[in-house]
Simulated assay, not measured.
Amino acid sequence: MIDAIDPAALAQYLVDHPQFFEQQAGLLGKVKLSSPLTGKTVSLQERQMEVMRDKYKALELQMADLIRLAQENAAIANKFHGWTQALLKAQHGADMPRALIDGLCNQFSVPQATLRLWNLAPGHGTEWYARGISDDARLFANSLLAPYCGSNHDFEAVRWLDDAGSVASTVILPLRSGGTAFGLLILGSPDPQRFRADMATDFLIHIGETASAALAALRA
């Protein structure tokens, strides 16, 4: 009576003796396996080819996903570059808020955008970007430790947009200098999926930091 062979021991033996199938080449054509793809019986070589094809397809999908992400990141980088160029072209400090807002709308196809600033240098207090700011809005700005991205819950800051009633999703970015907020940048869209709560905010943080640096010259 033949003792049962331990499958693990047999597998380890084949790993330890890779020359086995070289010495017993005829076995490769005799070993038959069931194919999970067709349900038919195939040779060991055919089954190995199926496994390799599956791995190749998985690698193709991963590569396609990486290419897509790279293309999306390159497109975002180009838009960001165009926006910063528009900021650099602003001739005077007072032109910066409008250049910043228009650049965001044009480069990133944002339907609506605006900003408000406080603690400004003399001469800027009557400008559009310094009007209608409540103490609550300033407290809200200082409480934002990260960009807000998601549904519009009738925020005061969103009401600063020209067509606030149509805004379904929004981004609210605190503008900071030395850790203290001196303004808010608001983006709005009628599409509830344009700005979602589960979106990554790394790029939005870069926008907020760049905007803060560009507007620093207007501060007191």
Rank of each mutant, 00 (worst) to 15 (best):
M1F: 08
D3F: 10
A4N: 10
D6S: 12
L10Y: 07
D16F: 07
H17R: 06
Q19M: 08
F21H: 03
Q23I: 08
G26D: 13
G29E: 12
S34F: 10
P36G: 04
P36H: 02
P36S: 08
T38V: 06
G39N: 02
T41M: 10
V42I: 14
V42S: 01
L44W: 03
R47P: 00
V51I: 15
M52F: 12
D54E: 12
D54H: 09
K57D: 14
K57I: 14
A58H: 12
M63Q: 14
M63G: 04
L66R: 13
L69W: 09
Q71I: 10
N73E: 15
A74K: 12
I76K: 09
K79G: 14
K79T: 01
F80R: 09
G82T: 05
G82Q: 08
A86M: 13
K89Q: 15
A90M: 09
Q91M: 06
Q91S: 07
G93H: 07
A99C: 11
I101S: 00
F108C: 04
V110C: 02
R116A: 12
R116C: 09
N119F: 00
A121E: 15
T126E: 15
T126Y: 01
Y129M: 04
A130I: 00
R131A: 14
G132L: 12
I133F: 03
D136V: 09
A137R: 09
A137M: 15
R138Y: 06
A141I: 00
A141T: 04
N142P: 05
S143G: 08
L144H: 01
A146H: 12
C149Y: 02
G150C: 01
G150T: 04
H153M: 09
E156Y: 07
E156A: 13
E156V: 09
R159Y: 06
D162H: 13
D163H: 10
V171Q: 00
P174R: 03
P174Q: 04
G179C: 13
F182C: 00
G183F: 00
G183R: 01
L184A: 07
L185Y: 00
G188N: 06
P190Y: 02
P190M: 02
R194I: 10
R196W: 06
D202P: 03
F203A: 09
H206Y: 15
T210N: 01
A211I: 02
A214H: 03
R219P: 02
